[in-house]
Nucleic acid binder design. Structure first.
Lengths: 195, 195
DNA sequence: GGTTACATGTAACTAGTTACATGATTAG
DNA sequence: CTAATCATGTAACTAGTTACATGTAACC
């Protein structure tokens, strides 16, 4: 799932790990997204040829190659302008873009995954995007039906309250998705079914 | 987290694994809760002394020891009433109940865990229960604040829609929790702060 | 001179899913 | 006789978290 997030973010522009993590936080909102998952994921993506990396020195656009005899004071002057350490900047490859398109269309039964798919669904062709929404909708409807088939057995007020919140959330979610789908259809009155 | 769910269910009454799994499904609603997690969890809980198990033969309360010469027709009659295989029925121990109380008060920053805590919070003393709700409330408020501090940067309509749904969901959740807290306070006007 | 932000990584752990293996019994 | 339900379990995998290790540089 991190793969999806990382490839999506890299499609928007090249980034290094630390920066990726910050964007991930605001994107996923409420998750930890710590480096313990991110850096290994980047290494894996690179091994599979979905991204490539370039080492970038922290001193950008600042002066000449330092000749070896330059004293420490000089060295200190050269290392200005940008923070500390050499960064590894990642860019998405062509194979990576293909893979991203696949990931964007997978499943629909996973809340977290759908969140990411939605965040990057602009990279999908309109028909695939609509298909994704419909798939998610079908899933929500089936959850809805399941909940109706066997309602709460418990008399405990806390359990009842919980299940009612669930119900309301499902309804709200479905209404929201329906608006999304309606907008999607409205913005593409093309593709006339041949007649 | 499964530990919490299993101990909570066993506190309501003794159960075997298969039955536990069914209750788990309706409780957690939308999760898989397959046996691959459940059975190892039960084994672990037993090793730690939080539950104990009893093997129960499938034929309960049904007639005499079958004498060897009884024909197949008879045998079929005897093996009625309950399905196939020997079940392992688990019951919660005293140590298990203590542990359950601890699990019910942990954290509050985990959506899934809080769901389970709420489902079994009736086992908590009223003041601990209220504390749990307040802890969760504080967490939701901090999420709310975080979201307000840095709003959506993106212009993408899908991302915007997503973040707005998040916002609405947080507000709905908070309102729901506040109702829960209000009810809780209303139902215990006792504990007069000494004066 | 200490805290925060920048920057990359590893190791151990938590939590759950998917697929497999096995076998009995029941309902159609 | 065959599909579904009951029943217990293992192995391999997916996905993410927490804690650790290390070091620079900017801010106050």
């Amino acid at each position: 799932m991190l793969d999806l997030a990382v490839l999506g973010l890299l499609k928007e522009g090249d980034l290094h790990g630390y920066e990726l993590n910050k964007r991930l936080k605001s994107l996923v909102g409420g998750y930890a997204n710590s480096y313990g998952a991110l850096y290994p994921a980047l290494a894996r993506l690179e091994r599979r040829g979905w991204v490539s990396s370039t080492a970038v020195a922290p001193d950008i656009a600042v002066d000449e190659q330092v000749t070896d005899e330059s004293p420490r004071r000089n060295r200190r002057r050269t290392t200005r302008s940008k923070p500390g350490r050499t960064r590894k900047v990642y860019q998405i490859t062509e194979a990576g873009e293909d893979h991203l398109l696949e990931l964007l269309q997978e499943d629909a039964n996973n809340e977290r995954r759908f969140r990411l798919q939605l965040a990057f669904c602009r990279f999908l062709p309109p028909d695939r995007r609509l298909a994704l929404f419909e798939l998610r909708r079908a899933h929500l409807v089936s959850l809805q039906a399941m909940a109706r088939r066997d309602p709460v057995h418990s008399n405990d007020p806390y359990v009842r309250s919980l299940f009612q919140r669930d119900q309301e959330r499902r309804e709200h979610d479905l209404a929201w998705l329906d608006r999304l789908i309606a907008d999607e259809r409205a913005n593409r009155p093309q593709a006339p079914t041949d007649r």
